[in-house]
Amino acid sequence: MEQIEKAVAAAVYAEDDAGLDLGASLVAAAPWSDAGRELLRRGEESVRRAWERGWQPADVVRVVRRDLDDLHVRLTTDLIAAENRRYATTAPRWEAQLRDLTATEPWWGSDDRYADALAARERTDRFSLATALLELFRLLIRLPVIEPVGPPPGDPVRARPHSPATPGEPRMLTRIRALLAKAEATDYPDEAEALTAKAQELMARHSIDAALLAAQGHTGDAPAACRIGVDAPYETAKAILLDAAASANRCRAVWNSALGFSTVIGFEPDLEAVELLYTSLLVQGTTAMTRAEAAQRAAGRKRTRAFRQAFLTAYASRVGHRLSEATRHVTEEAGGSLLPVLAARDVAVEDRAERMFPQTTSTRVRGVDDHAGWEHGTAAADRAKMPGRPGITR
């Protein structure tokens, strides 16, 4: 529709809100069903261009959630689900993101019904919906090119090979996740310790077995990559924590502070370990910080932000040391015959990281000036459980 084309051009390519208002007015004045169908088509094109620039569904939703509103997030999920109809195959991580976003397939049926179904769902007027869609288009079209971390949708997906020695691999990861969830939720330290210890045992075995199978020629294993969100506030401390989890699992993490994520490069079992480890440690650290902060505030302290910044920075720093010790412990237990295998995997990961990010820079962490926060954060790191790696006693 020519009217929708004018609306999109006025809104997306203008630098001010006057063009946005003009575009929304043009959309609202058009036949609503036709406008909805055309906007959906253009939205699919915008999403497709994001995929071509290296973005994945979770990445796009993360940026939209950060820069726009909940309505825009729901609209983004709609566009992703609509675009996903084009593809017969998607990679496992891609498919998992679609499931998490509830974007595996459209919920509105025929595209001719999208506009009316959308208005009924959001319970708002046409002008507001048109404005939100055009704001979303403007964000999507300006997404920069980033490093791809997996095959784009529609490309043939190479199935991960399984050995008869590991027929229950997916079941093992599900069990690890369940154990960690229970460990994070329980109020009883002894129970948490037992649950986390079991998760440590299973995850360590999973990673080492994968390395041995690859070395024996049972798999065509090669380094892969994934992106993990590093959200504000205190994102520097969180990026340090993620880097510690990555290093402990023989992965490499590269933080993009502007876009709010780190790219983690490593072998697939180790990437899974990093995601589980980082999530669990972040939950434990945040919970401990909240309790420590409450005690500080009860004692009359007011500098909440400074305390939190110092706490999480200290927590990330100390956890990094503990993870390094745990990695050495696991390697020693595995025996010296495994060292050449692990060294070869380290080289492969480093080579993949250098090819993906030939130019990286180091950043200086801002100093923290809250001594109590640093002390509490260090203590919390010493108490934290290490999913996937045997515990270390000080």
Rank of each mutant, 00 (worst) to 15 (best):
R389D: 08
E191C: 00
Q296L: 04
Y114I: 05
M386K: 04
E38A: 14
D17L: 12
S207F: 02
A380Q: 02
A348L: 11
D67V: 13
Q56M: 05
G36F: 06
E193A: 10
H72I: 02
F267W: 15
Y87N: 00
R394I: 09
A204F: 08
H321G: 11
G320D: 13
W94K: 00
A344F: 09
L213T: 07
A298R: 14
L276Y: 02
R303T: 06
Y234D: 14
E135S: 09
T104Y: 02
P340N: 15
D34A: 07
I80P: 09
L68C: 03
D243R: 10
A381F: 13
E375N: 08
E350L: 09
D370E: 15
D112P: 04
R41I: 14
E38I: 11
R345G: 02
R74H: 06
S280C: 00
L212G: 09
Y13I: 14
R355A: 07
G36S: 09
F357Y: 13
P106A: 02
R142L: 09
W51R: 04
A288N: 05
R66H: 13
K198G: 05
Q56V: 11
K238D: 06
V330I: 14
L213E: 12
A181N: 06
E293Y: 10
I176P: 03
D369F: 07
D155F: 04
V12H: 01
S207N: 13
R66K: 09
A194C: 03
R86Q: 07
R37C: 07
G285Y: 08
V12S: 08
P167I: 02
T304E: 13
M1F: 15
G373S: 08
F261L: 12
Q97I: 04
R389H: 11
A18D: 10
W32V: 13
Y13D: 15
T393P: 03
I4M: 15
R175M: 12
T77H: 03
A192N: 01
V27A: 10
L98R: 04
Q3I: 15
S46W: 00
A58G: 05
P92D: 15
A9G: 09
R366H: 15
P223Q: 15
A18R: 11
D187C: 01
L71F: 08
F357A: 07
R177N: 14
R85M: 03
A224F: 06
Q56S: 07
A273F: 12
V47G: 05
L133C: 12
R121T: 03
A81W: 04
G388T: 09
F311G: 07
A197R: 01
F261G: 12
T76Q: 01
E275P: 03
Y87T: 00
W94S: 01
E332P: 03
A18T: 10
C251S: 04
R53G: 01
E95S: 10
